[in-house]
Write a protein that binds this DNA or RNA. Sequence first.
DNA 1: ATCTCGCTGATTGACGTACCTCAAAACTTT
DNA 2: AAAGTTTTGAGGTACGTCAATCAGCGAGAT
Lengths: 343, 343
Amino acid sequence: MDRPTVHDLARHARVSLATVDRVLNGRPGVREQTISRVQKAIDELGYSRDTNAATLARKNPYRFVFLLPKSNTQFLDTLIAAIHEAASTHAALRAKIEVLQAPMRTPENALEAIQSLDPDALDGLAIMAPETPSIRDAVLNLQSNGVQVVPIISDLPNAASGHFVGINNVAAGRTAALLLGGFSNAHHGPVAVIGGQAMERSFVDRRLGFDAVMRERFPHLTVMPTIEGYDDAARVQQLVEKLIARQPDLAGIYLAASGTSGLTAALRQAKHAGLKVVAHDMTKASRAGLIDGLLDALIVQDVGHITRSAIRVLRALKDGLPISAAQERIRIEIFTRENLPDP
Amino acid sequence: MDRPTVHDLARHARVSLATVDRVLNGRPGVREQTISRVQKAIDELGYSRDTNAATLARKNPYRFVFLLPKSNTQFLDTLIAAIHEAASTHAALRAKIEVLQAPMRTPENALEAIQSLDPDALDGLAIMAPETPSIRDAVLNLQSNGVQVVPIISDLPNAASGHFVGINNVAAGRTAALLLGGFSNAHHGPVAVIGGQAMERSFVDRRLGFDAVMRERFPHLTVMPTIEGYDDAARVQQLVEKLIARQPDLAGIYLAASGTSGLTAALRQAKHAGLKVVAHDMTKASRAGLIDGLLDALIVQDVGHITRSAIRVLRALKDGLPISAAQERIRIEIFTRENLPDP
DNA sequence: ATCTCGCTGATTGACGTACCTCAAAACTTT
DNA sequence: AAAGTTTTGAGGTACGTCAATCAGCGAGAT
């Protein structure tokens, strides 16, 4: 009935406590053969580490790093604030959490940032980055040195396999299409999609879902080719201004990346009744945009949840504990002017 | 730098460890004056209990009870399944979790169920019940006997004050209105709202939000008086069948309570293109209804999250720890046929 | 003067794991 | 077979709290 302890493991595997400890914590000096004996005991007894006792006994705190793009979007600001808040909470739980930012417009910079991390002084990495081959390799290299890696916000399916902490971006794209299509009723016209940069997995997925629903359900709206906004508000503003000037019959805009403040700035001048706009993430600009009627709907991922989930997942991976997929699923929230919560 | 321990408290308050323990755990045999000395030390040092050490040391597990209405809705089935799953997870965390069901159509039965609970053998109660005076009093009585109470799904604002675990039902109602109004475009016509029973706070709130948005944004739709479905599928089916027969120009139905299987059964016979339908909660029936096009949108609260959050809140209350409001906020999810996740 | 009772102190042993040391045993290599 | 290296064992301390025991103090009651 009671759950097995390390003592039970030792007895069952006919080794000493010290050996069990060495295996559990990946310390050196154990023969392959003995490791597998202990592993077998773990499987047979269904042992899992008692987290309470473990964190209580732990001397050195875990060290987790969040590696984010260096670009000053409002969304990143909210994300970083959430990380710092979680960091103070987790000080009690023996985890040291830091934020690192690196320019990611060119893969070289991101690579450099990853390589600057010392695998021996690092337990886990939560990373938000585009999926370039060099980044993928750097991540795989870190992992082979015992560092747990979790992609956040934007997935890296070919590198850190297994767990991604963020919304289902395909579903987000589908939802965006549904909202845009639903709001624009029977209007005909072109719909513009603005992304960040091409290699960003999150945008690729959103576009995928968006196009699928647009094609199936709203054939009267024609989706234009992607415009790259590089998550830069000034650039987005310019692009949108041009767009509206050239396409007076524009039926919708889907901003599937950052730069919302640029979007709302452009719309403030030029939005017409037929134009419906959907964007992502809750920031000062997007909130104001909703209230002022410049944005019609917002698809939101809660940065607090993402942060906490990433930390939980890193801990679980490090402790060899199972991850509850249902609990770690990050939800999409849809906000309009009507159901906007207090700040 | 390090967080203070009970030893620091004892030294600072110039009492013994035993006394600190008595104060912290509410055991008898300490003078008021001494209690406040210890309290002062707690405040000054910013002490908070180390949860890991506490659960590790705890001999007797916490005993938490979920008290739910006894009625066989599919939603309750999913909720109970979620509770049982959480129970098995929390066995390791020294908490015994049970489910109790009582008929709640009349307040007397619910009252009886609450009164049958022995306050001495109970640490926390998560309760889903309508807000009647007698239930409120029974809850207050339990609380004064040291039992922590948290309302779930449906709030009890005048009894268990402070923490409610569930979605913001006013916002849910607003969202429902937005969806119904948005989907039905320029159609005119009556919109029906079906509730459970009048005293249920969750329904009252939903109705409030729904009406507000309907009035403000969709004046071309006229909202009919509430129909009480008593969360009973057969009754809902009958009511909807009659409704559609009598009101051939019906523009929308908002089912703000349980009984979705009855709704879809009725719609399967009679739904016409102009009729838009919004309901709550993910069940077998509502899922099928979405896929078959009988329901246009679903407002969903994740029962797993609600369950886990309720347990966390009860633990935190019992341990005298702060509750992170941001973390415990339960989110609304909106599903349509287009963004329905795999089961 | 003794007894009871309410309050407080002092001390101790869990709980399950991490982390460390020292020495012994088991293999390898020469 | 000796010397060297790797692997394993035995045992202890620490983490912070809970829970229990026993002893002692003073105040009021008998």
